[in-house]
Design a protein around this nucleic acid. Structure first.
Length: 867
RNA sequence: GCGCCCGUAGCCCAAUCGGUAGCAGGCAGGUCACUUAAAAUGACCCCAGUGCGGGUUCGAAUCCCGCCGGGCGCACCA
């Protein structure tokens, strides 16, 4: 008989974390038949753990723990996405070394993380800014270079004026703002490094169909981003004023070759290379003025949809290859130089943009497609953009749009004026950055030999220390003459190192592979290790990477597969995108100021502490500027990690946003205290799990009383429910609710149950609790004298016999309305159920003696009598 | 503009295949018990008919159509 005790999470959590650590409990086993990799998106080491991190890692931890208990060999690692601008900015602002700053942040975040009781194998920790990691990032870059998938080119690129570097297209949002700094990006012409992601556009798109374990919306977002459209490229021959072919051509891209006979004009992007050459002298001044006007506009202004379309003829004319008709050439602001061929054919009858343009400039509208089974379309509302039947199209008249598209492409190819072509919205990935704190691009520029890769045995190209940083223009490395000048690896003559560093998304595009073989110093990872652990069985992270990181990682995987470095095509089998953690936010609607919750005297009537004005109250993503953040450390200090974990899992389904609520945290804490007292009561009674190695002999589990039976049913239905909630879709919130339900049932029946059944219930409850509240489960397990760590036990199995009921309540409906219940034998067949229902008082009362015209029997559920 | 997701008690959330909307769960609120009192604890109670309007069905939160509200993605991509 032990003394009664109180739940004191601070003491037990610390103690168990140390013991687990000493016992190497979370050490990764050798991979086997049932290998399972659970992975959270690794964090940037800002130095502060926030609630979003906590949610991410707790979710993954529960998944890892359940997988272990189900007998899998589990790899559950963690690392740091450690290159990036915050470290460099800290260096500029405070003069600290970016490497030291980052290492300190990592140390502090690691210890914050460890307080959560995560079952992470820290032996495989990786840090992208350490040479033992980025050496391999460079090595992989050279693989891309060798495969012809990395190249330099002069291009119009996005320049972030705040962060003073270029950005990839994926890193600029639809408003033209940088994903990091929020600044509106500028366009600059620069020579930059690119990875040829477009070479994999088809695979990246087509393989999305196989990613059935991914949220639909992430797949849709990637498909939209890749933006494949199939169509044709068609050449229009230039014709001079005298009517003779000049020998030059304009090539347009269209998805609607079936509308070719309806072309009224051809439009070039104002930046198109041919514009200067084709403009006739009489139009030269006007065209130059128009081009100036357009180039002075931001992309935002230019692509705003409600803006009127503007254009100007350049004086040239071209011949429509399908019907020989001569049409004028224009330039217009709505045509983009970078997409397709930078030129389009104007078909006002069948394209809304062309229609508006033609209206404005009084260009002819020639209808060539009509709705099937109808007369000609009226053009009051706009263009007819759907498919139909061709008219005014010579030999193609009468064909459907779909077959005309094929037929016209065939004709074009045979007659040499066009071909089928597919274009993409996706652009090659711009990976060079003009910043210091990144992975150096391992190439050397030699005047005689050109771009020379740094030989693999000379990797890593180490980032020099003590570089002066002021964050103003140009690559900081370029100023370090002693570092830049090196002998060419080919010819030995003096040459210059590349001074740009890589986009940090390069580092995060392959880190998940490194975990499989984290200490390999001859390769980034061995093929055997990576193929045994990967693809990641369950990946967990925020939706903000739906395109960025997740697209790049998929691209890397496919390239490395084609290089023979790994044997799979997709890196992440299943993806869970967790929702945001939101804090309660108070804002003064007039001043727009955010007020900290601590300064709000009465939350039921929130007032501005200064002016007394009523405040708006809502939930928003936690952030410093809104004063709505909750520090995980404070919560853990007060309630313990188990409460924090339970709350976060319980409060909302994992993929939905979670509203932080202190009262609910309190409630979760109370639940854990209830569990503690429940087990404490069992200890008072003298119960012990010491004698049980594999469980209780089954004959002793045969319930002999109603309380026993109810208890056992509650236990086993909880096992079924929690197991289901953790299978397939993860529903942690309902799983925790099931634990509460079970503890309620145990509170009711445990005292009157036999020792054997009470122990079975306690044992099951703790096993089910273990992934969620690992410290408490372990502590209570040990207090009950059970052998070994609870985290080395098998997940409990439900006994179907315990779920069987003798009788069940049968719902009696009359005309679909519930009119009463009938207690019936659980195994009764349809006919019996029908008879029981018909003979019941309920039937007598509601049918008033008339026999029903129809009887619907749903065994185990209900009987519906339809009069 | 196009596409996708969501809307259930005061609040957060449940509800296999369409089958008793809450003996799923929690928070908040109320009453009572215990206590000198309070906290803690326990027991009980209160609260929606599923955003709105139609339809299909014996039966709809669930399926279909149209609205309203909120969120997200794409957006002059030819």
């Amino acid at each position: 008989m032990s003394e009664s005790s109180r739940y004191q999470p601070q003491a037990i959590e610390r103690q168990w974390q140390e013991r687990w650590n000493d016992a190497r409990l979370h050490h990764t086993p050798d991979p086997g038949e049932a290998s399972y990799m659970a992975l959270s998106m690794f964090p940037y080491p800002s130095g502060n753990l926030h609630m979003g991190h906590v949610r991410n890692y707790v979710i993954t931890d529960v998944i890892a723990r359940v997988a272990r208990m189900r007998g899998h060999q589990v790899l559950h690692p963690m690392g740091w996405d450690a290159f990036g601008l915050p470290a460099e900015n800290a260096a500029i602002e405070r003069g600290v070394d970016p490497g030291d700053w980052t290492d300190q942040n990592i140390a502090s975040m690691r210890s914050q993380l460890q307080r959560l009781g995560l079952s992470i194998d820290w032996d495989r920790e990786i840090t992208t800014c350490h040479t033992d990691y980025y050496r391999w990032t460079q090595w992989l870059f050279l693989q891309f270079l060798e495969a012809g998938l990395a190249y330099q080119k002069e291009a119009t690129v996005n320049w972030d004026p705040i962060d003073q570097t270029v950005l990839a297209n994926e890193q600029v949002d639809s408003e033209g703002r940088s994903w990091r700094s929020g600044a509106v990006v500028e366009k600059r012409q620069l020579r930059q490094w690119f990875l040829k992601i477009t070479a994999y556009a088809d695979q990246l798109l087509d393989d999305l169909d196989g990613l059935t374990g991914w949220p639909e919306r992430v797949r849709t977002m990637q498909a939209n981003w890749i933006g494949r459209s199939r169509g044709a490229e068609i050449s229009f021959a230039l014709v001079d004023a005298a009517g003779h072919d000049s020998g030059e051509q304009i090539s347009v891209f269209t998805t609607r070759p079936d509308t070719l006979h309806g072309v009224s004009y051809v439009v070039l992007a104002p930046e198109h290379q041919l514009v200067e050459r084709l403009t006739t002298p009489d139009q030269a001044l006007a065209v130059a003025a128009f081009r100036d006007l357009v180039s002075g506009q931001s992309e935002q202004e230019r692509t705003a949809e409600d803006k009127p379309k503007r254009g100007i003829p350049i004086g040239a004319q071209v011949r429509n290859p399908a019907n020989g008709q001569l049409v004028p050439v224009w330039i217009a602001d709505y045509v983009l130089a970078e997409y397709g061929t930078g030129a389009v054919m104007g078909v006002p009858a069948h394209d809304q943009r062309d229609f508006l343009f033609a209206r404005q400039y009084e260009l002819p509208v020639q209808q060539v497609v009509i709705p099937a089974g109808s007369d000609e379309h009226a053009f009051e509302g706009g263009a007819w953009c759907a498919d139909g039947i061709l008219i005014h199209s010579g030999r193609f008249d009468g064909l459907s749009s779909a077959s005309a598209r094929d037929a016209i492409v065939v004709a074009a190819e045979q007659e040499g004026w066009g071909r089928g072509r597919t274009t993409y919205r996706l652009r090659d990935w711009l990976i060079s950055r003009q910043r210091y704190w990144g992975c150096p691009i391992p190439v050397i520029h030699c005047e005689s030999c050109g771009v020379v890769p740094v030989p693999a045995d000379q990797l890593p190209v180490e980032l020099p220390r003590n570089v002066p940083l002021e964050g103003r223009g140009g690559s900081p490395l370029a100023q370090l003459e002693s570092w830049v000048t090196v002998p060419c690896p080919c010819c030995g003559k003096p040459a210059r190192r590349e001074t740009d560093t890589m986009d940090t998304f390069m580092c995060s595009s392959w880190y998940y592979l490194r975990y499989s073989d984290a200490h390999n110093d001859t390769l980034p990872f061995s093929r055997a290790a990576v193929d045994r652990w990967l693809p990641v069985d369950q990946y967990v992270g925020g939706i903000e990477h739906a395109i960025l990181h997740l697209l790049y990682a998929r691209f890397f995987t496919k390239v490395l597969r084609d290089r023979g470095l790994l044997g799979f095509s997709e890196p992440f089998s299943r993806l869970l995108t967790q929702g945001m953690v939101q804090g309660i936010t108070y804002r003064n609607p007039h001043t727009g100021r955010h007020i900290a919750p601590a300064d709000v005297a009465d939350p039921s009537d929130p007032r501005d502490p200064e002016s007394g004005e009523r405040l708006d109250t809502f939930y928003e993503k936690m952030s410093k500027s809104k004063h709505n953040g909750v520090d995980p450390a404070v919560v853990i200090d007060r309630y313990g990690a188990d409460t924090a974990r339970m709350f976060i899992l319980f409060k909302a389904p994992p993929e939905k946003d979670l509203e932080w609520d202190d009262a609910d945290v309190e409630g979760q804490y109370r639940f854990l205290q209830r569990l503690w007292r429940l087990v404490d009561g069992a200890l008072q009674r003298g119960l012990s799990l010491a004698a049980q190695s594999g469980g209780v002999a089954s004959d002793r589990l045969t319930p002999t009383s109603a309380a026993d039976r109810d208890l056992r049913r509650a236990v086993h239905s909880a096992i079924v429910a929690v197991s289901d909630d953790l299978q397939g879709e993860f529903q942690f919130n309902t799983a925790v609710a099931e634990l509460m339900k079970l503890s309620n049932a145990m509170g009711e029946h445990l005292a009157s149950a036999s020792d054997a059944l009470a122990l079975e219930a306690l044992r099951s409850l703790l096993l089910l609790l273990a992934p969620f509240a690992p410290h408490m489960a372990e502590e209570l397990w040990s207090r009950l004298d059970a052998a070994g760590s609870i985290h080395r036990q098998h997940w409990p199995q439900a006994d179907p016999a315990a779920l069987v009921r003798d009788t069940i309540p049968l719902v009696i409906q009359v005309k679909g309305k519930v009119r009463g219940n009938l207690e019936v034998p659980a195994d009764a067949d349809r006919a019996t159920l029908e008879q029981l229902a018909l003979n019941s008082d309920i039937a007598a009362k509601w049918l008033e003696g008339r026999p029903p015209s129809r009887v619907i029997v749903v065994p185990g559920k209900l009987v519906n009598l339809v009069p």
